[in-house]
Amino acid sequence: MQINALNVNKHFQIGNQKLVVLDQLSVNIENGKFICLLGPSGCGKSTFLRCIAGLDVPSSGEIMVDGKPVAGPGPDRAMVFQDYALFPWCNVADNIMFGLRLRKNRGRRDRPDAVVLDELIGLVGLRGFEKAYPHQISGGMRQRVGIARALAVDPGVLLMDEPFAAIDAITREQLQRQLLDTWEKTKKTIIFVTHSVEEAAFLADEVHVFGARPASIRESFVVDLPRPRDHASTAFADIASRMRASIDAGMQRAAS
């Protein structure tokens, strides 16, 4: 799925103050790429992601998805949330199948539930936990459910809003590797919001660095290191330090 944003502005009205979050943001995202939006917290990268999802509406400018302007949220742009946003009353299997069952109610004929479920459970490594409720499993497992639930509706793009930010470092690395694995198998476009330079450098084909608010994209990096990437290699350290320098420069500009 191809995404084109052109001169996107977004401001929020807080009392009689106008808070400008996105300022003339433009970016083109190619089909099948793994894209990271990198920046300090509160810089507007999540707001931009929510605009692509259709959960927020830009104040002006345009976001086109496969040539069509975004009109509200939909399963073609599935989202993975930082706080997982699982349905607490659904067990793992029912969470994953939620979107697909809604479609089935509208007469869509997909593959049998059991087949899809089995495949997704295998893909995210949750076999044996189908009947568990979200409160019974760890944060890392909950986010795997979140990813499987998003993949279940076969979206064109996977929007991920700091999905591993609340997860411990060891599990996070495991989930990152698993996500790359999933991405290589499914060839989905992924837009991944993060404030971790290492995460962006480890995962992405392209990294767009956001400046401090009001944000647009300061600088874009193509990361053409082969996968699996080695955090300890000089090439990795080099690209990571260039990204960090870009973030720092953006924050200094905002402070001055």
Binding site: A53, G54, L55, P73, G74, P75, R77, A78, M79, F81, D83, A85, L86, F87, P88, F98, G99, L102, R103, R149, V153
Partner: peptide, 14 residues
């Protein structure tokens, strides 16, 4: 009901 849960359902097509 958490806002993100409602949003997740909307995105999944509810």
């Amino acid at each position: 009901v958490p806002r993100s849960v409602v949003e997740a359902a909307r995105i999944l097509g509810a």
